[in-house]
């Protein structure tokens, strides 16, 4: 791809040539690249950008179920919602709606604890699996199984196991003489329960990803460390962890985004009416949009806010990583 990397030459060319000529030259050089990305750009434009713009617009209005345009029989009722500026954002961010900050706090707790357990357990298991031992491939397959189950199926199964009267967990606890735990009723236990399910579902991905990272660390580094008399802990600290850095950075970022947006587990596990105090921002926004009185504007506002928070997180995370990389 020599032609593609020769960009600086084009940029350095003096502006003597006319704009049209330069456009022509750019086109000649890049038209096939543009043609190749065109389908995706079109799809993104129609299916993402257009709804996104509409969503942003809705978040500046007071649209709800009652005042949007709708079709009743043959008559068409026009939309009567109004532009209200930043009112929605102000109501949410000032804490006036009473929902945002508690739910944000729980969403952050949920994300941090899930990703923490995903990563530490995944790393631990990967380190165990990265040794020579009998039955390694069997362990590997067994440990990966939770990932192979569709999340919604897994959520239902766990919901059955958490059942307070006939669930297997309470049955086992009962045999140990511990009274029944109201897993899905009590707010605190609900939170424990959903974190448990998500950890179970998410560890295999981390494990496999970290295992891949471990296997990519060259054994010469370990041999050199051994020759210098490094203890196992020192080898882990100074060879393994730095070697895992690229993989870890990526999977932790992916995991954070996925967990922050994790809809099915909380929604299917707790249902809509049951989880008023343990729903995360995404499920709350969903309930706003499709709950009893559909608050489209509120849901759109929450959607935009969630996306903005994730973007800020991603940018800062990358920046911190880059800085660490530069400092090393």
């Amino acid at each position: 791809m020599k032609t593609a990397t020769a960009d600086p030459a084009t940029a350095a060319r003096p502006a003597r040539t006319g704009l049209l000529t330069r456009m022509k030259r750019l086109y000649d050089r890049h038209w096939y690249a543009w043609a190749m990305v065109l389908p995706v750009v079109l799809v993104i434009g129609v299916l993402i950008a257009y709804p996104l713009v509409q969503g942003v617009y809705l978040s500046f209005t007071d649209a709800n179920e009652l005042n949007v345009a709708k079709q009743l029989g043959a008559t068409e009722i026009p939309a009567t919602y109004q532009f209200v500026g930043l009112d929605n954002y102000w109501r949410v961010l000032s804490g006036a709606d009473g929902e945002f900050y508690p739910k944000l706090l729980w969403t952050v707790v949920w994300t941090v604890s899930c990703v923490f357990f995903h990563y530490t357990i995944g790393l631990g298991l990967a380190l165990l699996l990265n040794r020579k031992l009998k039955g390694r491939s069997l362990y590997r397959v067994l440990l990966i199984l939770p990932w192979a189950v569709p999340p919604f199926v897994a959520t239902y199964i766990w919901r059955m196991m958490y059942n307070s009267e006939s669930g297997v967990f309470n049955a086992m606890l009962g045999k140990l003489g511990i009274g029944p735990v109201d897993w899905l009723g009590d707010t605190f236990m609900q939170k424990v329960a959903v974190i448990g399910v998500n950890v179970w579902l998410g560890v295999p991905f981390m494990m496999v990803a970290v295992l891949g990272g471990l296997q990519a660390i060259s054994s010469e580094q370990y041999e050199a460390a051994e020759m210098d008399g490094a203890s196992p802990w020192q080898r882990f600290r100074h060879v393994t962890l730095p070697g895992l850095r690229p993989v870890s950075a990526t999977v932790i970022m992916l995991g954070t985004i996925w967990t922050f947006n994790m809809f099915p587990i909380i929604y299917l596990m707790l249902g809509e009416a049951n989880a008023l105090h343990s729903e995360i921002l995404v499920t709350y926004a969903y309930r706003l949009a499709f709950g009893s009185v559909r608050d489209y504007a509120g849901a759109a506002t929450y959607g935009i806010l969630i996306l903005s928070m994730l973007l800020v997180f991603a940018v800062f995370y990358r920046r911190i990583l880059d800085r660490q990389e530069a400092a090393r």
Binding site: Y50, P51, I257, Y286, L307
Partner: peptide, 19 residues
């Protein structure tokens, strides 16, 4: 492409529902 991976369901669902 990277940013779309971060889209929560809530951000597009209302607009898509209406469209």
């Amino acid at each position: 492409l990277l940013v779309t991976q971060m889209f929560p369901v809530a951000v597009l669902i209302v607009a898509l529902y209406n469209i």
